[in-house]
């Protein structure tokens, strides 16, 4: 088992755990953090392959993902804030307006 394979498994594991957290946890903010975890898992796999193949493009890709994640969180948290102002709760189970 070499480095690449090991790190790949770690990244897949992180991704799965993040996805699990999205399904399992109730708190909206915790769900956001799980999404960040998923991104991190993906980043890890990208970096692994970039390092292995010696390509800078992979690193550039990772960098871009950083920026997108930041922009995303900049929007997501105000949205959560507004939701909470409306319903006074962080429980994802209370937001079922998409029903039907």
């Amino acid at each position: 088992m070499d480095k690449t394979q090991f790190l790949l498994w770690v990244s897949l594991l992180l991704f799965s755990i993040g996805l699990l957290g999205l399904i399992v946890r109730r708190n909206l903010l915790v769900m956001l953090m799980c999404m960040e975890l998923m991104l991190n898992g993906v980043n890890l796999s990208l970096v692994t392959f970039a390092q292995r193949g010696g390509s800078v493009e992979g690193a550039v890709m990772v960098f871009l993902i950083f920026i997108v994640a930041a922009a995303e969180i900049a929007i997501a948290i105000p949205i959560v804030l507004l939701l909470v102002q409306h319903r006074r709760t962080l429980d994802a189970g209370a937001y079922t307006d998409l029903k039907g």
């Binding site: 399904i23 946890r25 109730r26 962080l90 429980d91 189970g93």
Partner: peptide, 9 residues
Amino acid sequence: DPSFTDRYS
């Protein structure tokens, strides 16, 4: 709120 005490969906 409930998500604090009851953390799993």
